[in-house]
Design a protein around this nucleic acid. Sequence first.
DNA 1: ATTGGCACAATGGTCCAACCAATTTAAGTG
DNA 2: CACTTAAATTGGTTGGACCATTGTGCCAAT
Lengths: 249, 249
Amino acid sequence: MKHLVISPILAPVHTPSRDDAVLLALVDFVTGEGLRPGDRLPTERVLAEHLKVSRTTVREALTRWQELGLVERRQGSGTYLKSAVTRNMLHVPLTLPSGNDFNSLMHTLEIRRGLEAEAAVLSAERASDEDIAFIEQKLIQMEEAFHARHGMSADEDWDFHLAVFRTSGNPLFEQIIAAMYEMFHRFWEHPLGVRDFGHASFPYHRTLFNAIAARDPVAARAEALKLIATVEDDLRRGAANLKKQNKKS
Amino acid sequence: MKHLVISPILAPVHTPSRDDAVLLALVDFVTGEGLRPGDRLPTERVLAEHLKVSRTTVREALTRWQELGLVERRQGSGTYLKSAVTRNMLHVPLTLPSGNDFNSLMHTLEIRRGLEAEAAVLSAERASDEDIAFIEQKLIQMEEAFHARHGMSADEDWDFHLAVFRTSGNPLFEQIIAAMYEMFHRFWEHPLGVRDFGHASFPYHRTLFNAIAARDPVAARAEALKLIATVEDDLRRGAANLKKQNKKS
DNA sequence: ATTGGCACAATGGTCCAACCAATTTAAGTG
DNA sequence: CACTTAAATTGGTTGGACCATTGTGCCAAT
């Protein structure tokens, strides 16, 4: 018996698994209730009872949300919303190979080079006056921290870059570069033994800000590239030091 | 009563959960056994018995891997490896609000713009003769597919770009842009109703290849940007069409 | 009034045993 | 050999129980 030719319009039947149904109901609940990040969700037992599914199923669904970073579970306390959730939200997990060798660290910088430059361009094109004031505030905080401790402060430095990404109007920049940043600082606070890592990048933060404030995309791109270039130089210098030490021993 | 100022060195303690232990053991098993994507993992019951944990715990761990796209579960058949897994892997769930509208699609292209240009530069700087022959092979396959069906073929097009990323010497490009690509094509094959999407980008594939083959990073960057620009134009055209249709109805 | 200790309830984490549903495999049947 | 059918396999779900951690309120000591 031959199969009939079926119109290709017929797509695979959408068989929503039980977890998906739970998650969908939970989205509606969160939006309907107007829950915001930090708020507590109903307990697993309550959810299971109301949704007429077993607690195990609820747990599997929440485990998925946890893996996506949408929710955080604290034993003895409850389950808390970690990020805003709406129905039309696309989640794509990104898995990156990481390492602490010179090449892997340089790879993260190559990604940053492309993305930070692009983000600077977009920020210069789109930033509102309030956005620019916001970036300047972060810049000043970073500069104050720099003078106070005579060196780069990782937190304030990151806050400044974050401000630029946020004003680019594209949330993906922040998420991807945050991953690069984490890979870079995952193992060492002083990568490869360089103590004043990032020191040379300091002046370019202000020049980058000036370019963005002047709504000059070309200049913003150039300054962002200079900034990354100094970090790459630091990294190469650290690799050279490491090589020298190995030769001695 | 005022709180004392605590040294910022104090970080939350690391409490490894049971799932993590299972996942770690599973990583070692996969690498030790040399399993490759497509291979079948042991059944949940077997894993539970060997790891001395309950099947529930194994299931929670596998659910997490499934959410990350590392593994695929088929009821009645088994659990299959979907992607290579190693110990040093960083998982970043990317979240893009409102997946199908014009702005979200454009956001993925903004990321591609920065990264494809950078990858083209690196490829032009580093590609060996064999690499260039490999890219050319993919280019020819794409061109043949184009002429055969009088339009862009998504698979061959992607293979060509993939070849460029791989010869850039940085595996991060492939991973990140693949995520952008998936976000873009998740819902519709013909974004926003544009039927010959990507048609205009065709000639720039060869000009990009020529620049890389000539070891000209500057030209390679320029051609990559032109290529993305045509896709962005297609997208804008699609958005305009959509707007017109909405006005009519 | 503040602090510290304590018991108790609430909540997520784990376990077990059974059954359901889809798939695969093998036996049976013409 | 082709097809059907039954059984075994495997992931999906359920209910109930218990453990580990956290939050809360009470109470005594200071």
